[in-house]
């Protein structure tokens, strides 16, 4: 490259900016950075700083009430890793993730296929209706669901009793056999709309001409689905699935308001475990909470790595 440029002065001449432009560039960059400054500062204050601080706190013993912070090295990490309740919360987090992602991805795909059909009446209404829970505050959803699933007077139990399916009310949120699965169901319902929108966007990338050509060749509905829609959606499937896995790790507000991690730790996901140690323990231990957060953060990074691999594989597939 150097050789080409040296041997061809025209190239050099054409790439060199005009004198006035060269002088303006630093000023332009200054304004770019100035405009970015609010985002950079806020991102730094509310995202980067807490992350860095939590890494530092993980090496300290500190209850949050005193000024004294004692450096304890890796003791907090050892305590977290030796705590069966941490592994319980980790297990619950993974089970929750595995429980919600498949139905969320598959059911929303089916719904998006239906809503993408030009023949479906009121499809805008349905899209809006399914999206409404997404814009509802998760904490409010959690509180409302306590009433919806109330074993005494909740509409779900009343309906089941009137239909003769059960004799006595089921304690969906207060019984450890049901609580996690109920919470998983609510989560899928709450975030159904966002995944549906992803699928609708993906479906709209498939050109109509491809379908028309296939129809002319005599393809039926099932063949269109099997040979065109699903293969072309495959790259999106990877991305949407990975995004769903990642978002299933963030259920703090919903779970806290709906079950508070109970009964007896049955729905205590890692986020609530961290919160309990940081704020709700008899004597809060911010170091212990931070160590758990760091370990959980590493797990999220692993999930994020899968996402990067997924994106790359999609890009490669598209390039081919």
């Amino acid at each position: 490259m150097t050789t080409v440029m040296e041997s061809n002065p025209d190239v050099l001449r054409s790439e060199a900016p005009p004198p006035g432009r060269k002088a303006r560039r630093p000023r332009q960059q200054l304004w770019i950075w100035l405009m970015l400054l609010p985002t950079v500062v806020l991102y730094g204050l509310y995202t980067v700083y807490p992350i860095v601080a939590s890494y530092w706190l993980a090496f300290l013993e500190w209850n949050g009430f005193t000024a004294e912070k004692t450096f304890v090295g890796l003791e907090n990490f050892q305590a977290v890793l030796a705590d069966p309740l941490f592994w319980n919360s980790f297990r619950i987090t993974v089970i929750f993730m595995l429980a919600v992602v498949p139905p969320k991805v598959i059911l929303t795909l089916l719904l998006a296929l239906a809503l993408n059909s030009a023949n479906l009446p009121f499809r805008t209404f349905f899209r809006t209706a399914y999206f409404l829970p997404v814009v509802t505050t998760a904490a409010i959803v959690g509180i409302v669901m306590q009433f919806v699933f109330d074993p005494a007077s909740g509409p779900v139990n009343l309906a089941l009793r009137r239909l003769g399916i059960i004799d006595a009310g089921i304690n969906f949120l207060g019984d450890s056999s049901y609580a996690l699965w109920t919470a998983a169901g609510v989560y899928v319902w709450k975030w159904f709309g966002i995944t549906m929108i992803y699928w609708l966007a993906a479906l709209q990338t498939i050109p109509d001409e491809v379908y028309e050509a296939a129809r002319i060749d005599g393809a039926g509905a099932w063949q269109l689905m099997k040979s065109i829609t699903l293969p072309l959606l495959k790259p999106f499937l990877i991305i949407i699935t990975l995004l769903s896995f990642e978002s299933a790790l963030k259920v703090f507000d919903l779970m806290l308001t709906m079950t508070n991690g109970g009964p007896f730790y049955a729905t205590e996901v890692v986020e609530i475990y961290i919160y309990r140690w940081a704020f709700a323990a008899t004597v809060p231990q911010l170091g212990h909470a931070s160590a758990a957060a760091v370990i959980f953060g590493l797990f999220v990074c692993v999930v994020g790595l899968f996402q990067i691999f997924g994106v790359r594989s999609v890009q490669k597939a598209r390039a081919i």
Binding site: T66, L85, P263, F264, V283
Partner: peptide, 23 residues
Amino acid sequence: NAMATAIEPDLGMIVQGAFSGDV
């Protein structure tokens, strides 16, 4: 007392667990 750390499950949680059948 200032050195005391949380012990889990505490009395309230054990009673809750006894009711839910988890303990």
